[in-house]
Amino acid sequence: MVRSRTAINAIIGAVVGVVLSFIPLSPLLGGVVAGFLEGPDHRDGTVVGALAGAIAFLPIAAAGVFAFGVLGLGLAGGIPVSGIAFLSIVIVSGILFLLLYTVGLSALGGYLGAYLAVEYPNRRRRTRETIGFETDTRTRTADAAPIRDRESEPEWGVERDQDRERERDR
């Protein structure tokens, strides 16, 4: 069952994938964003990434249906039936390839985003706060990082600053 939070994360990931569509492998980036926002569970990250890819595929499918309609209607009287059948197979094969490309890379990105959420729980919490999402760990314990990660992860640059201070003190 898809929760509303998952759907919102999938829509955010789809928007990122569509906005960055001029970059190769942009569905991967959209999936990473969706998986990172979803949380540290790899399965949930993969599911939300695949949903983000399916949502991002909708404009591609609409363009394919439009092209199929224009080419199919325009060529109905001028090309033999076998030519229309071949053209139909080519267009449908192209759409299926794009579906697998978009949804597959987004699912992979969702998995990687969930991995990043495990590695950087403080970053995830701050990102969710910036967007305006709820960050209370009592509502869902699966979103909380393991205790050892929360205690041992230093803030960005703090460890480097501590190393510099040690070097200076020597």
Rank of each mutant, 00 (worst) to 15 (best):
S93C: 02
D161W: 07
P24D: 08
S152Y: 05
G94Q: 13
G104A: 01
E151V: 15
G94L: 13
T6P: 00
T141C: 00
T130Q: 08
G94K: 03
E167Y: 11
G78Y: 10
G39S: 05
T137L: 04
P146N: 08
R124A: 07
I131Y: 04
V2R: 00
G78P: 01
V103F: 00
A145C: 06
S4G: 10
R126C: 00
V33N: 09
S4R: 10
R43G: 10
V103R: 01
L73Q: 10
S4F: 13
A7W: 11
D149C: 04
L71I: 14
G74M: 09
V32F: 12
A56V: 05
A63T: 12
S26M: 09
L87F: 09
L100P: 00
Q162D: 12
I23H: 02
L108F: 10
D169V: 11
G45L: 06
G104P: 04
E134H: 03
V16M: 13
D41L: 11
R138H: 04
W156Q: 10
Y111F: 15
D161F: 05
R164D: 08
R138Q: 00
A14K: 02
G49L: 03
R140S: 11
R124L: 03
R43E: 02
V18N: 08
G53A: 02
R126K: 12
P59M: 09
G69W: 12
T139S: 07
G72K: 01
V65I: 15
G35H: 10
R164L: 13
S21Y: 12
G39I: 04
G35Q: 01
V16W: 09
E151M: 14
A85H: 06
V48D: 04
G94D: 06
A54W: 00
D41Q: 08
A56Y: 03
I8V: 15
R125H: 07
A107M: 04
A114R: 03
A7I: 15
A76T: 15
V32T: 06
F22T: 09
V47L: 13
M1N: 09
L28E: 03
T46Q: 03
E151I: 15
L73Y: 06
A10M: 06
R170H: 12
G49Y: 04
E38P: 04
L29K: 05
